[in-house]
């Protein structure tokens, strides 16, 4: 990635990758990936202290993708920022590829944690943050959760734990696109007011437009809050491809034929 590339341009490229990866693999969760492209672009361009030349560097900031089904966006940002060869991307899910349909760290440089069962990654992230606290390390730990994923009880067990141990080096970002696997979140398991819930667990809560890079940076670059931080990112599932936006079908469907061409055209014209 040229140093001059803006995070906006990076995000646009991630979206193109995500659409192409779903097209070639015949698997999907493409809308889930499009929802988070801006978030990971900002993280990897401006926030995370990582070294693609030394992915396991002890002092690195850790990023845990808890909503592991949306991993095409993570694989793409790792490839675009130099962790591995982007030529691997379009082989995702295919026979013999290292890149599975839920994120794996086996054989994939830069991936912090293998996930796919919701409500695990965030708890492992809290463990990494606890180590940072106890050993007085200055790395920070970031974790991306789905809002549907917040149905899982383990998320709230983690929320108690992180508050109890004062994990102010931990930042959870909730990709709040309002949709999950069978419908809109409020129709399945209404969270009512997610911000209030995290606050009630003793977390510092910030909110931002999850597609505004400036807003995301402002929220993430602020000083440590003295408490674990929850950033609620207001997003649109399928963002960037008009016919995928807020359309649950694209949680499942892989773009082929006209859909593929139209999706790419929209993203290339942006």
């Amino acid at each position: 990635m040229p140093v001059s590339m803006t995070s906006e341009e990076l995000a646009r490229r991630l979206r193109i990758h995500a659409v192409e990866m779903a097209h070639f693999s015949g698997e999907s969760h493409v809308a889930s990936a499009l929802s988070m492209c801006d978030i990971v672009a900002v993280l990897y361009r401006h926030i995370l202290r990582v070294d693609p030349g030394d992915p396991g560097w002890e002092g690195r900031d850790r990023f845990f993708l808890s909503k592991g089904h949306a991993c095409s966006a993570l694989y793409a940002v790792l490839a675009e920022t130099g962790f591995f060869d982007p030529a691997l991307l379009n082989g995702q899910c295919q026979n013999g590829s290292p890149l599975s349909g839920h994120v794996t760290r086996k054989g994939v440089p830069g991936v912090e944690w293998s996930t796919g069962s919701l409500g695990h990654g965030c708890c492992a992230a809290a463990g990494a943050a606890l180590n940072g606290k106890l050993k007085k390390k200055d790395y920070r730990v970031y974790c991306l959760l789905g809002d549907g994923e917040c149905d899982e009880g383990s998320v709230w067990e983690m929320a108690l734990f992180a508050h109890q141990y004062g994990l102010d080096n931990l930042c959870v970002i909730v990709d709040q696109n309002g949709m999950q696997a069978m419908g809109r979140t409020e129709k399945v398991a209404d969270h009512i007011d997610l911000a209030k819930k995290w606050e009630a667990f003793g977390w510092e809560v910030r909110q931002a437009d999850g597609h505004s890079h400036r807003a995301l940076r402002e929220a993430l670059e602020g000083p440590l809050a003295g408490a674990p931080l929850c950033l609620i990112a207001h997003t649109v599932k399928g963002k960037g491809v008009s016919f995928m936006e807020n359309n649950l079908l694209w949680h499942y469907r892989d773009p082929q034929g006209e859909f593929f061409e139209n999706a790419l055209r929209e993203l290339e014209e942006r």
Binding site: G148, E152, Q180, M182, G183, V188, A189
Partner: peptide, 27 residues
């Protein structure tokens, strides 16, 4: 929270026998 599409016959014939507990396998 699973069964998108596949559950349609059940949702049509017996909507009142279908409970989506959310992504909450334990509960």
């Amino acid at each position: 929270d699973l069964g998108y599409g596949v559950m349609n016959p059940l949702l049509e014939e017996h909507p009142d026998r279908f409970i989506n507990a959310g992504i909450c396998e334990q509960n």
